[in-house]
Design a protein around this nucleic acid. Structure first.
Length: 348
DNA sequence: CAATCGTGGGT
DNA sequence: TACCCAAGATT
């Protein structure tokens, strides 16, 4: 069993300065943990600061319209996080305060076992071990667990909980949890771990066996199918666009999109796609296609454009200016085709 | 419970 | 360029 005191001593010397470090405000800790779900520190850092300027506390977030939150989350991905964040904020305001422990936190939408434990440990000093990818990797290496990750998850979580059970860790739950994150992020990295600098190297079974970099064992990767879509960009004389709000659930749920066909594996002939245009107009096919990789498929989109003096009012569609939009990256890539086709630069 | 759900940065 | 992958949750 690796000693908690060794890790804490290392953390006290090497802790990283991050925007969410140093606060124990449950709102801020919660926001940082949700933003960091499957998202890198580099990507989160500027967005976290900006988000807090716009929504400084849970009441402000709860009172905000979804459109404002969608705008603020655009480009961060996994938009269910934003929807759940909004619903949870409203639940917290409704009940009057944040739940006081990890079990209560886990009952809020978008807060699973990991996030509940992380917020409780950091904000409430509750001695629970948040088990994320870092903790799984560190634990798998310490114990030289060679089972594939998906099969070893329960066992790794139990072993990681054993770390937090040590008195030195229980005395500083938030620091110990964040020490594990920092260790995984800077020393016990997925590739080329810096074992020579690791405070636990002397007690690491994987290092002793020379197999640290191979753990945790990874599942076989699957092939990502290609899907195709055709989209229709209608602009007026002032550059406003006719957009559509996607359904609240599912892929890019609640975000704006350029209207178009469904995304399917079979390619679209332009003629076949025309019935999906919002209006009949002189649609011009732009050269090239926009590509965007989602987690489980790759998307290729063609774009047709048309101009009109003023945007029509159509049920289900909205006119939007060119700025401050809840447009996910996939849609921004699509709009870039139009920008590239313009003879004069200066548009986004 | 395996599949779904995004994106930017690093290599 | 192409791949890997990151402080996961939900169904």
């Amino acid at each position: 069993m690796a000693s908690a005191s060794l890790l804490l001593a290392w953390y006290d010397r090497h802790r990283r300065t991050l925007p969410w470090r140093g606060t124990r405000d449950p709102y801020r800790v919660w926001l940082s943990e949700v933003m960091l779900q499957q998202t890198t520190v580099a990507a989160v850092t500027p967005r976290y600061t900006r988000f807090l300027e716009r929504f400084p506390d849970v009441a402000a977030l709860a009172a905000a319209p979804w459109e404002a939150l969608a705008e603020e989350w655009a480009g961060l991905g996994y938009y269910a996080r934003a929807r759940n964040l909004h619903a949870a904020a409203q639940a917290v305001v409704e009940r009057g305060s944040f739940p006081g422990d990890s079990a209560g936190l886990a009952a809020l939408p978008g807060i699973g076992a990991y996030t509940a434990a992380a917020v409780a440990a950091i904000a409430f000093d509750e001695p629970v071990m948040p088990v994320d990818g870092n903790v799984e990797r560190v634990t798998a290496r310490i114990f030289a667990e060679q089972m594939p990750l998906h099969a070893a998850k329960v066992r790794l979580a139990r072993l990681a909980a054993g770390f937090m059970a040590q008195p030195e860790a229980r005395a500083r739950p938030g620091d110990f949890a964040q020490a594990m994150f920092d260790l995984g992020a800077t020393i016990c990295t997925p590739r080329r771990p810096a074992c020579a600098l690791c405070p636990w190297s002397g007690e690491c079974a994987a290092r002793a066996l020379g197999i640290a970099e191979t753990l945790p064992a990874k599942a076989a990767k699957k092939v990502r199918p290609v899907r195709h879509g055709v989209h229709f960009l209608l602009r007026d004389a002032e550059g406003r666009m006719l957009l559509r709000r996607r359904p609240p659930e599912g892929l890019l749920g609640g975000m704006l999109e350029v209207p178009g066909t469904a995304w399917r594996e079979a390619g679209w002939a332009i003629e076949e796609a025309m019935p999906f245009a919002p209006i009949r107009a002189g649609w011009q096919v732009l050269p090239g296609e926009a590509r965007h990789g989602f987690t489980h498929f790759e998307l290729r989109m063609r774009l047709l454009v048309a101009r009109c003096p003023s945007l029509p009012r159509i049920e289900g569609f909205e006119a939007h200016p060119g700025e401050g939009l809840a447009l996910p990256t996939a849609m921004r890539r699509l709009l870039a085709l139009d920008a590239a086709a313009l003879p004069v630069a200066g548009k986004v």
